[in-house]
Design a protein around this nucleic acid. Structure first.
Lengths: 137, 137
DNA sequence: CCTTTAGTCTACTAATTCGATAGAGTATTA
DNA sequence: TAATACTCTATCGAATTAGTAGACTAAAGG
């Protein structure tokens, strides 16, 4: 299951993609209210998305956050990796967060490895091809 | 990501499917050693799988656990639902653990709902058709 | 019948994560 | 220079995760 952080992050950026023109900043407070998200919690999430290159920000009056790329160029998979971490069900089948399992001798012998690779590929086929632009419909 | 509990449970039952004849009990200790799982932790997992109808048990000398069904009749999805809970990424798209999201007005309006349904369907297509018999290869 | 074996059950723990909040600080605008 | 709005650090309680300890019960077998 996705954490609320990931869910809120995706919903917030979808809101921004739907509403914004790409350069006019949008208030945290507005997003929080519209999407029913705790404002303080959302602050943290958007800040992280800024620090990872998805958002730009402007302080003071008329400030807020804005998307740095076009919605169609931001995949759900990329956002999930930043907010949630690995998409795969096991570390040993993760493409971006690979880690060896310490209870398996080899990955060839691991009974779960192959199935989880298959799950991962099916999941990624969806998430890599879905962008913020698709979520706004 | 799957919890270790789920991972261990799947590996343990795969071991049993590979090794057992369906009625001769297999020792917890043997599975734990062969699959590098903490014995005490595995006790708890197998007990749960007994209480949910997957395993039978026998106490005393010559005792242990045995599968109640044939490996080909136990899907990975069924095991994961018992050990891990929901397979879907959001409660509102879970077939077996459905829950309404309190931050969304309606599910039609929710930008994430449709994508997550698609992910779920793709994941289930794999997991529902994969049985313990497939894992033993 | 008594010892050994092996699953059952309850309880507890340490560490981590999750979701959220508080409040001071800083940049920007008017 | 006052108001605005993002930035940063710190903290919090609750829940979850992974694992351990130890007593209890059922069964086999000599």
């Amino acid at each position: 299951m996705l954490s609320k952080k990931t869910k809120y992050g995706l919903k917030a950026l979808t809101y921004m993609a739907k509403k914004g023109d790409g350069k006019t900043p949008i208030l945290i407070a507005e997003i929080a209210e519209q999407e029913n998200i705790s404002k303080k919690f959302l602050e943290m999430i958007l800040l992280q998305l800024k620090n990872t290159g998805f958002l730009g920000s402007k302080k003071g009056k008329g400030g807020g956050y804005y998307l740095l790329k076009e919605p169609k160029d931001i995949t759900v998979a990329a956002l999930m990796r930043v907010l949630e971490g690995p998409i795969a069900m096991l570390p040993c089948v993760s493409l971006n967060f690979y880690e060896k399992c310490d209870d398996c001798k080899t990955e060839e012998e691991c009974s779960l490895n192959r199935v989880m690779v298959e799950v991962r590929d099916n999941t990624l086929r969806v998430l890599e091809n879905k962008t913020l632009a698709d979520l706004t419909n």
